[in-house]
Every structure is written in C-alpha cells, then in structure tokens.
Simulated scan of single mutants.
Amino acid sequence: MPQYYHQYKIQLLQNSVNSIVEDSKFYNIDELEERLYFLSKKQNVAIVLTNNKGYVMFGKNENHIRNKYTRNIPMYNQLKEYNISAVIKLKNSNELYHLDIVMPLQTIDEVNTVLRNIMPFIIVSAFLIALLGAYIYSKTITKPLIEIIDKEREEEKKRKEFIATISHELKTPITIISGQLEGMIYNIGKYKDRETYLRKSYDSTQDLKALVDEMMEVSKGEILGKDLKFEVINFSDLLKNLANRQSYLIEDKNQNLIYEVQENLSIKADKEKITKAINNLVNNAIKYSPKNQNIIIRAYKSKASKTVVLEVENTGITIEEKYLKEVFNPFFRVEKSRNRKTGGSGLGLYIVSQILKSHDLYYKIESKKNSVVFTIYF
C-alpha cells in the first residue's frame, strides 16, 4: 500500500506540474502565483518560483533552509522528500522562471505505521464479521434448506412404509380368495361346499374393496389436502344426521347412543371433509366398543374460549398410554392380529387426522378408566 500510494502521489504531482507548464503561456505572473498557491494547499507541497536572477517570486527558498539545517542531521532521521523542477515561460515575457517543488513523503510512511498498528484489530473485526455473517447465513438460508431436505426425507420414508404396509394389507385378502377359489376349482376337501366358500370369497372381496376405497381416500386427501372449500355449517344438524346414519350399526351391537349436542352450533369448515372425519370417528367408536356399551356424542360451545367443542366417547375399552400417539399412523391397530371382524384397516383415524390438520384444528385422544374420548376444538 505505501508503495502504491507513493506512486499515486508522485504521478498526481507530476500531472499537475505538467499542466501548469503547459498552461503558463496563457498566464501572467499573478495568475501563475494563484495557480501555485492552490497547488501547494491541495497537495501539501512546498513551492519556490524564481526568475533568472535567482530572486524568489513565490514561496520560500526551501532548498536554502534545508541545506542549512539538515547537514548535521543523520541520514536515517532526515525527512523523505520528492523533488520536481520545471522551467516556465509566461505570456508577453521572454524571461524564463524556475519552478522547484518539494513533496514530503514522511506522512505516507506514518500512515503505513498506523495501519500496521491497527492491523490486529482489523483482522479480529473481520473475523468476527465473518462469523456473524456465517451465522446469519446458516440461520436464514442453510438451516431452512436442511429442514426442507430432512422433511422430504421423512416424507419419502413415510411413503415407502405406507406402500410396504399397503402391499401387506392387500396380500392377505388376495391370498385368502386365491386359496378358496383354487380349492373349489379342484374340489379339495371342505372346499367342495362351494356355496359356503363362494360366500366367504365374496366377503373377502368386500373387505378388499373397502380397503382399496380407504386407500383411495387417503391418496385423495394427500393430493387435495389444501383444496378446501370453507363454509359456515350448521354443526348441530350435521351431527344429528351422522348419528342417524350410524343408528343401524349401534342397534346391531345393542349399544346405547347418548346424544348431548347443543342446538344451533355452527362452525366454518369444508363440509364434505369434516363430515367424512366425524363419520369415521363415530364409526370407529362403534366398531371398537363391545356390545351393550355406550357411544357418547357431545358438542357444546365453550364459554371461556368461545370455541365449539366436539367429544366422541366410547365405553368398555381403553388404550394403553404408549399407543395413544400411534393410533393416527396409517394401518396401525392396537389389536395386533388385525382381524377384520374386530376392527378396520387402521386407516380411519389416519384419515381423520389428515383432514383435521388440513383445517388447522387442534384435536386429542384420551384414554380414561373405562372409555376412550376423542376431542376436536373448532
């Protein structure tokens, strides 16, 4: 930097002197002195202008003063200077003038010394700024990208698990149907009773159809999860219609429906999807409760939060604490035998959770001493 700055200052002075020499033929002595005055102030130089007889026309005889006082000063203590000389000819004059300029270079070296002294602080500051910049970059750009990548990986993992589970779920009824049909074709043993096993095969195809329908519902929900049509719904009427729709299943298991719903409750939601979710809840409660138990549908407006609360409770059954969070996973069933007579495919509550999440609704499931309660806050 000092070397570059030396060259820059010397070149700047040289250009200024060349300009004065070139323009001097248009100046008289007063105009020249004015130009030299501004040059000395602007570039911090000592200027001496003399005529042919050595008489000083402008400035002080710096050379005489320097020669007088510096001869006794050691060389290493003498100031560093740059000297430049030129001959000037003014207009309307045949006389030649001599221009001597001295530019001190010591200040440039002082700047260099100061820079070296503050360099550690500059390096530390640059390092701290770099750390801060890296931290901000990681927070604003890198971390969100990592989160997106991790989320994609998690979703891909879930998709693979979902497909693997679907394959397993489809394989069971297909194997049953295939075995029964093969036995009937070759009239093997008990399969000679074709009427009985045709009916069983038919029942298995119905189970298979129901499973495919539920998987299609899941697929549709995942694809159109954000395609919601919100509207104000008379929630009391909706629950009444759903309860009536499930009355046959309740009577078939000799269960008791306890219906506690306030009148004129209203919510804002996608009617088709919310109907599907609540229908699955009620159907789940009926399906997993033993005979002669209670199915409780309770809805009311909370005075504290002014939200509409729905509770679907079924008695005669409990769920272990460790399984409560897993019941929303696809194909999960507490009953490990996965017997279709004692439950569904395990997609019911998964579909419910996806619909409620798409509505940004808070929900929870609790296991009491002799019942399970599912609660939704609208």
Rank of each mutant, 00 (worst) to 15 (best):
F121T: 12
N83I: 10
L128P: 04
S93F: 00
E34W: 04
V102Q: 11
S85H: 07
E31M: 11
T70S: 15
I47L: 12
N72D: 14
I73R: 08
M119G: 00
E81V: 14
V124I: 15
N117I: 07
L49V: 05
K89G: 09
K41I: 10
R71I: 11
S24H: 03
R35V: 10
S85D: 14
I118A: 06
N77S: 12
M103L: 09
S19Y: 13
F38G: 05
E22T: 11
V111R: 08
I129L: 09
G59S: 05
I101A: 05
K68Q: 15
N112C: 05
E110V: 08
D30I: 12
I129R: 01
G59E: 02
L128N: 04
N51C: 04
L90M: 07
A126I: 06
S16P: 09
V45L: 01
I20W: 03
Y137E: 03
S16T: 10
L115E: 05
T140M: 09
V17F: 07
I122A: 13
S125H: 01
I123W: 06
I136A: 08
S125P: 02
K42W: 00
E95G: 00
S93P: 00
Q14K: 14
S16H: 11
F26N: 08
I20N: 10
D30G: 07
Y135W: 07
D100L: 00
K91V: 03
N28P: 01
L49K: 08
V111P: 02
E110H: 14
E62P: 00
Y137Q: 04
L49H: 05
N67A: 08
L99N: 02
E31A: 15
N94W: 00
I88D: 06
I65H: 08
F121E: 12
I136D: 02
S19L: 15
S138A: 04
S138D: 11
N15W: 02
P104M: 09
A130C: 04
